[in-house]
Computed example of a mutant assay.
Amino acid sequence: MSLINTEIKPFKAEAFKQGKFESVSEADVKGKWAIFFFYPADFTFVCPTELEDLQSEYAALQSMGVEVFAVSTDTHFSHKAWHETSPAIGKIEYYMLGDPTGAITRNFDNMREDMGLADRGTFVVDPDGVIQVIEVTCEGVGRNAAELVRKVKAAQYVRANPGQVCPAKWEEGEETLAPSLELVGKI
């Protein structure tokens, strides 16, 4: 069953963010756009490239009212150690949630049970706590943060403009569509 258009489940986690530990729950997500960016593990190979790429778009996401929560089944202590030892991870300013029990990862149906690790999954959540975008890739395929920003802009546009939809490769400012009987078969 798809999680699209479902509300996120309650959670509580410890996070590492900008040199501090903070408690985070679903209440911290409500009322704003959020990205839950799951990755398999700290101190790995593709993960730091993705997290660094996401950091390169963090200011743009923040300007759009979006908060980022990176999540792995590591602890918040491990996130701190990785942040202090990796040049790529040392740049990160967004939340890094520890999920050692796997509760959050399972809430998003994103756990590889045989390994106890999160899949490489991205979930965009609207201000009502409803999942609007999901992307999951296999272990060896990294994600593109610029494309994620484009998807968030499209989701925000659709929310703000009921009756409008964004076609393939839509970029902010481009023409959208208003689905209707008259459009059927004309695209």
Score class of each variant (00 low, 15 high):
Glu52Gln: 13
His76Glu: 13
His79Asn: 08
Thr44His: 08
Lys91Gly: 03
Lys80Val: 10
Ala88Ile: 09
Leu51Thr: 01
Pro87Arg: 08
Thr49Pro: 06
Val124Leu: 07
Val46Met: 00
Thr122Met: 12
Lys80Asp: 11
Lys91Tyr: 06
Phe108Gly: 05
Pro100Glu: 06
Ile92Cys: 02
Gly142His: 00
Pro48Leu: 04
Ser78Ala: 14
Glu67Asp: 15
Pro100Val: 06
Phe69Ile: 09
Tyr95Cys: 09
Gly98His: 06
Pro100Ser: 07
Cys138Asn: 15
Phe77His: 08
Thr101Lys: 03
Gln55Ile: 03
Ser56Glu: 15
Asp114Arg: 13
Gly142Asp: 01
Asp126Arg: 00
Phe45Met: 07
Tyr58Asp: 12
Glu50Thr: 04
Gln55Asp: 02
Tyr95Arg: 11
His79Glu: 08
His79Gln: 02
Asp128Arg: 15
Glu50Asn: 05
Thr75Gln: 05
Asp128Ala: 14
Pro48Asp: 06
Asp114Val: 13
Leu54Met: 08
Tyr95Gly: 09
Phe77Cys: 10
His76Thr: 11
Ala88His: 10
Glu67His: 14
Phe43Leu: 11
Val124Arg: 05
Pro100Ile: 05
Ala70Met: 05
Glu93Tyr: 12
Lys91Trp: 01
Met64Phe: 05
Lys80Phe: 12
Ser86Lys: 04
Asn110His: 04
Ser72Thr: 03
Gly116Ile: 03
Val66Ala: 03
Ile92Leu: 09
Glu139Met: 15
Arg106Pro: 09
Pro87Lys: 06
Glu67Thr: 14
Ser86Tyr: 06
Ala70Ser: 01
Glu84Ser: 14
Asp99Ala: 02
Ile131Thr: 05
Glu84His: 09
Trp82Ile: 06
Asp99Ser: 02
Arg143Gly: 00
Met64Tyr: 08
Ser72Lys: 04
Ala70Gly: 02
Asp114Gln: 11
Lys91Val: 07
Asp42His: 01
Ser72Asp: 06
Tyr94Leu: 02
Asp126Gln: 05
Gln55Glu: 06
Asp53Glu: 09
Asp119Phe: 15
Ile134Gln: 11
Ser56Asn: 15
Val136His: 08
Leu51Lys: 01
Thr105Ile: 00
Thr44Arg: 06
Cys138Thr: 15
Asn110Cys: 12
Thr105Tyr: 01
Tyr58Ala: 10
Thr49Leu: 12
Pro100Arg: 04
Asp128Ser: 14
Phe108Gln: 01
Pro127His: 01
Phe45Cys: 04
Thr101Glu: 04
Thr101Phe: 02
Gly98Arg: 00
Glu93Val: 10
Gly121Cys: 00
Ala60Ile: 13
Arg106Ala: 12
Ala59Lys: 14
Ala118Asp: 03
His76Phe: 14
His83Ser: 12
Glu93Arg: 15
Val124Gln: 00
Ile104Tyr: 02
Asp114Ala: 10
Asn110Trp: 04
Ala118Gln: 02
Thr122Leu: 14
Ile131Val: 09
Arg106Phe: 07
Trp82Phe: 09
Thr137Arg: 12
Thr75Met: 08
Ala41Ser: 15
Leu61Trp: 06
Leu117His: 11
Glu139Asn: 14
Thr122Gly: 10
Glu52Met: 13
Ala118Arg: 04
Ser63Lys: 13
Val66Glu: 01
His79Phe: 06
Glu52His: 13
His83Lys: 10
Thr101Ser: 09
